[in-house]
Design a protein around this nucleic acid. Structure first.
Lengths: 191, 191
DNA sequence: CAAAAAGGCTAATGAGTATTAGCCTGGATC
DNA sequence: GATCCAGGCTAATACTCATTAGCCTTTTTG
């Protein structure tokens, strides 16, 4: 089983660095010390590798989101926790998040619709968090859609530039970005 | 000359929708009504098409940035104008911006370094805008780098979801996002 | 109006690539 | 100890592409 995991990890790394189309089965094989065709003893196809990465990524993100907000009522706290989960996931699993955001085009049809549906669901949940805050008079934005897109895009941007062990620790980024999200929706008093 | 422009426009459209690697010269030809090999009467190579798109995009963005802030002294106003230019460019030239952000990997070496240098320059300028505001006591952020990344990422995200003629007008998005940027750096009074 | 240049086309060329076929080996199983 | 079989490998299959060659027609030019 470990071999399959190594292959998935190598594929993830290569899909991130070179992109799905530019990565060959021989590349993936070389990364784990075997030839391209031998990969088929472990995985069904290149496309399946991508589909698995993207589907599990979106499912994990949604699961973490649910866990983050469950049992919390205050709109500000709900948005803070959701953003923390969002940002932390993008920092901790930046390869998965990066590929998940960029390779939707390379996904073929049974999978693409599924991933897009999960993503739409995730967006909808953030939008509702913002809407709830506005309805409660706690947030002040002109367009909840725009504000939620902005918050989501912060995480996606993160997955492009964040590096573990870089200048900024994971916690620092999570804390800062969550603060940014609350400032964005006008939820914090002026500093 | 018009033919070359048509080809560049078709390539841009296809690179955006399918990605550089997944776009064939035959596809681009079909989009302008000729066969793949005939394209070579107008352009040198597929790679050149990409390089041209990415280089001119970054140069335009830098030029617009310079124009936006020149002669403005107030830090808040400088950041507002820079963000407006940034967001407006990403809305108005979303295909160029989208490709410019996503296809750096597909660029081969004389060009990639050049584009990366331009991009680094652009990031540096935003970071300095934020630093200046902090130094003047007008902005309140923990990390200027993080804040400028966040603002830049807003534009990049925009180029992924914005659609001309959609629910939100260009001006609405520009105004809102510039406001977000100022809220992000703590430059606005509490609403 | 003849010559040349533009700009198309089809047919190579020359790679590269996912996937399949079929073989081989060394350890596990009986 | 003979038999499996998991997991490698090389060779073949069957594309798909970017790019080049060489030809032909139309338009421009002198």
């Amino acid at each position: 089983m470990s071999r399959s995991d190594d292959i998935r990890a190598a594929a993830l790394e290569l899909f991130t660095r070179r992109g799905y189309e530019a990565t060959t089965m021989a590349d993936i094989g070389a990364a784990v010390g075997i030839r391209g065709p031998s990969l088929y003893k472990h995985v069904a196809s290149k496309q399946e590798l991508l589909a698995q990465i993207m589907t599990t990524t979106m499912e994990e993100l949604l699961a973490l989101h649910r866990t983050a907000v469950v049992g919390v009522d205050d709109p500000t706290e709900r948005l803070r926790r959701a953003t923390e989960a969002h940002v932390r996931y993008h920092a901790r699993h930046r390869l998965e998040a990066f590929v998940g955001n960029r390779e939707i085009r390379s996904l073929t049809e049974p999978h693409r619709d599924r991933v897009l549906a999960l993503r739409a669901e995730y967006e909808r949940r953030f939008r509702e968090l913002v809407n709830d805050g506005v309805a409660a008079g706690r947030f002040h934005v002109t367009s909840a859609r725009l504000a939620s897109f902005a918050i989501l895009d912060l995480g996606m941007g993160l997955s492009a530039w964040y590096r573990e062990g870089g200048e900024l620790s994971e916690d620092a980024v999570v804390w800062q970005y969550s603060d940014f999200a609350l400032r964005l929706v006008g939820a914090l008093p002026h500093p």
